[in-house]
């Protein structure tokens, strides 16, 4: 189906790229239907609202810059979107890009959990106090590299 996207204008979206958030996202509770797109810039993705074109989130796999990341969300929340097996679960962090894009941050406290089988998702709140809403991605990347070289 053709969908108007914020980053790329009108484009063809496959059914398999559609993700439903039955409860929306925090602050966007009224938006339920999204499409997951590859961004032209790796390793990012776009989560495009199919209901409001101006709402689109940049996503990243948190393991990309925090190999030790675990979302630590309530199992009940996973069950809510039918995630009973680890392999069904996809985890993304929402990226915020400030004016100076090298300071872009990822929200590890409010991860997006997707069920890749049913294509349902929800935003959870991590119970782990280590994770905040603004982790500077480049800082984390250089830190994890240092850690790896030790």
């Amino acid at each position: 189906m053709k969908v108007l996207t914020k980053p790329y204008g009108e484009m063809e979206i496959a059914e398999a790229q559609r993700i439903r958030f039955p409860r929306g996202l925090f602050g966007f509770e009224d938006l339920r239907d999204f499409a997951l797109l590859d961004a032209a810039q790796q390793p990012f993705y776009w989560l495009q609202s199919m209901e409001r074109v101006e709402v689109a989130f940049v996503l990243i796999d948190p393991l990309f810059f925090r190999p030790d990341y675990s979302p630590d969300v309530d199992p009940g929340e996973l069950e809510e979107i039918g995630v009973t097996r680890g392999e069904d679960r996809l985890v993304f962090a929402i990226v915020t890009i400030p004016e100076n894009s090298s300071l872009m941050t990822a929200n590890l406290q409010g991860p997006l959990i997707l069920n890749r089988r049913t294509r349902e998702g929800r935003q959870s709140i991590s119970s782990n106090p280590r994770w905040g809403v603004r982790h500077v991605i480049l800082d984390e990347l250089s830190r994890s590299k240092q850690g790896a070289s030790c």
Partner: peptide, 15 residues
Amino acid sequence: ENRAAASAAPQTLPS
């Protein structure tokens, strides 16, 4: 944070 993230202009996304 979601509101701030949602308002990003696509051309600001760097690689």
